[in-house]
Write a protein that binds this DNA or RNA. Structure first.
Length: 483
RNA sequence: GGCGCGUUGGUGAAGCGGCUUAACACACCGCCCUCUCAAGGCGGCAUCCACGGGUUCGAAUCCCGUACGCGUCACCA
């Protein structure tokens, strides 16, 4: 039987990184099977918590990541509808809830909610409700309902123990006495998440349930429902949380970065996905760079860890840099063009700029600030010519800069290669080290001690006129100070 | 509080009883390369796997206990 997994988010806001990772794992589990099916289901039973536009964020995110789903609200499928509020319209949850009563897996409860709330508060942590309604006869229940009594349907927990195997956490056994007789159908006729989730997973033929480990504790209750219906219990893959620090989960509430925040900061969806795959899962081979397809190949549920992993922005940054540098120049240029345009208004070779930036930028967002020197030649101190490793100081700089100026004045071809040829001939002639000529030149035309590109690259980008202009200014500044 | 799960460096982690003097990667620190920065190369960075007991010729690896952390106990998802 083909594997069917689902990603079932609630449209209550942003796409959390932890959420996205769960989606990724669900996707990978499905794709691991050539026949596998990955489904998107929107769980919006709690109408009060819905957030406008949240569903679109979900679509946008999984699309940007390439987590293509085979079935879902937007693409259809044979198990629809794929939005819970729509499924509700057919009354299936209510129907199943009543069916569960006849099978002994649930019962009507007429207890007052406020009374329960009050008792919970009075009795504190140890509160566990032993519902007297369980003992009501079917006739009694029908009578009360006919009289118009408000009711909910609660799960009936049998005596004994419940045990199941989780692919990540192993065998888990609990005493049924510790399980709560939770509400399955609310008094408004809507199902609770717990119930709708089970019904939907079954109706959609989900074979592998991939979700956060916060559901580990309630899984026995779900299994009791499956058993009461006589349904097959799916395989469970509970994932450890993605943490912000030792104690807190990553969450939008704390202002932690969401997927779209990261993209806005100049991270590649591929890199983000690649990075989060590594949080809580480790590949067999000693490797860290993976495309989505490669992840499908390498993924193995058995290598998902049990411990929450702290999200490390530094490592994401490194990985993003790896992805950026790994791109071919054409795609890279297309990608960074807007960022270059943002910083550079001057007429110059943007492709060449992309080239020098590609080897250095770790995120797209840092590109504009790297390029400030191109449009603006800021004033700088002659102090900067003192550089121990380059063995330069203002005096040496002045000497070599004058020689450079002379040579460049005559230079016609401003390609990096041509500039390279003429400039590299200079140090020998002046009996200087390369750095004593080129470092001052770089500084003289950028005004910065460090930055992207070498002297000839920068000169080539700036063009002859601007290069000479800056050179003159710098030489003048040095001569001024020398006097 | 009950129940469940977990605990290897600053971080992600490998490790599944001897091959571990605890991989690999990020970060950090050196050095090298180099016209700066970055990239790259090389090296350093856990006297030790939460702690305490056991089992064993031998334990990060198995067992028990303690501590700590997380999750869960809603007509939320």
């Amino acid at each position: 039987m083909a594997i069917r997994t689902r990603f079932a988010p609630s449209p209550t806001g942003y796409m959390h990184i932890g959420n996205l990772r769960t989606a990724l794992y669900a996707y990978l589990v499905a794709r691991k099977d050539p026949e596998g099916v990955f489904i998107l289901r929107i769980e919006d039973t709690d109408q009060g918590r819905l957030v406008e536009g949240a569903t679109d964020i979900i679509y946008d995110t999984i699309r940007a990541c390439g987590l293509k789903h085979d079935e879902g609200p937007d693409v259809g499928g044979n198990y629809g509808p794929y939005v819970q509020s729509e499924r509700m319209k057919s009354g299936i949850y209510k129907e199943y809830a009543h069916k569960l009563i006849t099978r002994g897996g649930a019962h009507y409860c007429f207890c007052d909610e406020e009374m329960l709330q009050a008792r919970r508060e009075a009795e504190g942590d140890s509160f566990k409700y032993d519902d007297p309604c369980k003992k009501l006869s079917a006739e009694e229940c029908e009578k009360r309902i006919a009289e118009g009594a408000q009711y909910v349907i609660r799960q009936t927990i049998p005596e004994g123990q419940t045990s199941f195997d989780d692919e990540v956490y192993g065998t888990i056994t609990v005493d049924n006495a510790d399980l709560d007789e939770q509400v399955l159908l609310k008094s408004d006729g809507f199902p609770t998440y717990n119930f709708a989730n089970v019904i939907d997973d079954h109706m959609m033929g989900i074979t592998d349930v991939v979700r956060g480990m916060e559901y580990l504790s309630s899984t026995p209750k779900y299994n009791l429902i499956y058993e009461a219906f006589g349904w097959d219990i799916p395989r469970y893959i509970h994932c450890p949380p993605v943490m912000k620090d030792e104690h807190n989960k990553l969450s939008k509430r704390n202002g932690d970065a969401s997927f779209q925040d990261l993209v806005a900061k100049g991270y590649l969806p591929e890199a983000i996905l690649n990075y989060i795959a590594l949080l809580g899962w480790s590949p067999e081979e000693d490797r860290e760079i993976f495309t989505l397809d490669e992840l499908v190949q390498a993924f193995n549920v058995k290598r998902i860890g049990k411990v929450g992993a702290i999200f490390d922005p530094e490592k994401l940054k490194w990985l993003n840099g790896m992805w950026l540098r790994g791109m071919d120049l054409d795609s890279y240029y297309k990608l960074v063009k807007p960022y270059i345009d943002q910083a550079v208004k001057r007429d110059c070779d943007r492709r060449k700029i992309a080239e020098i930036v590609q080897q250095r930028a770790k995120t797209l967002a840092e590109i504009p600030e790297m390029l400030g020197f191109i449009d603006e030649f800021r004033s700088y101190s002659n102090e900067l010519y003192n550089h121990k490793k380059m063995k330069t100081n203002p005096q040496i700089a002045l000497t070599s800069l004058k020689a450079v100026r002379e040579v460049l004045e005559a230079q016609e071809d401003w390609s990096t290669e041509a500039l390279h040829d003429t400039l590299m001939a200079l140090p020998a002639k002046l009996e200087m080290k390369n750095g004593q000529v080129l470092f001052p030149l770089r500084l003289a035309i950028t005004g910065e001690q460090s930055g992207p590109g070498g002297a000839m690259e920068v000169a080539s980008i700036l063009g002859k006129e601007e290069t000479l202009r800056r050179l003159d200014l710098s030489i003048a500044q040095l001569e001024n100070e020398a006097e």
